[in-house]
């Protein structure tokens, strides 16, 4: 029994730091998302969803919930990257839809 408790404690101790996001994790994720959103802005193709998700990340971080904040920042980065792909693809593709 003592052996099981010991193994369980070790497992928890080993995995906990990997699961719980820290403030540093949030900052890194937010910086990446912010940079991607700025790139989308330079292409004049930002999405409202990205903006609200970035705000949600910041709000969660302000409350100290870095787990949720990091998750939101990662989601915002994915959204921003999708808007960049859209803008890049549409650069010429819009012509396919043109009435001729």
């Amino acid at each position: 029994m003592r052996h099981i408790v010991l193994v369980a404690s070790l497992l928890i101790a080993a995995t906990a730091p990997a699961l719980a996001a820290s403030e540093a994790d949030f900052k890194a994720a937010y910086a990446a998302a912010d940079a991607a959103e700025k790139e989308a802005g330079s292409l004049r193709n930002q999405w409202l969803t990205t903006e609200t998700t970035l705000k949600a990340a910041k709000n969660a971080a302000d409350k100290g919930d870095f787990e949720a904040a990091t998750a939101s920042a990662k989601e915002a980065e994915a959204l921003a990257r999708a808007s960049i792909v859209q803008a890049t693809g549409e650069k010429d593709r819009w012509k396919d839809a043109e009435i001729r």
Binding site: N45, L48, T49, Q86, E90, W94, K95, A97, E98
Partner: peptide
């Protein structure tokens, strides 16, 4: 170009609805 370009998360252009 603006009229036919898809934008936004819903991937709509002006033309998607009005053409």
């Amino acid at each position: 170009r603006y009229f036919y370009t898809r934008r936004g998360q819903l991937n709509f252009s002006c033309a998607s609805c009005h053409v």
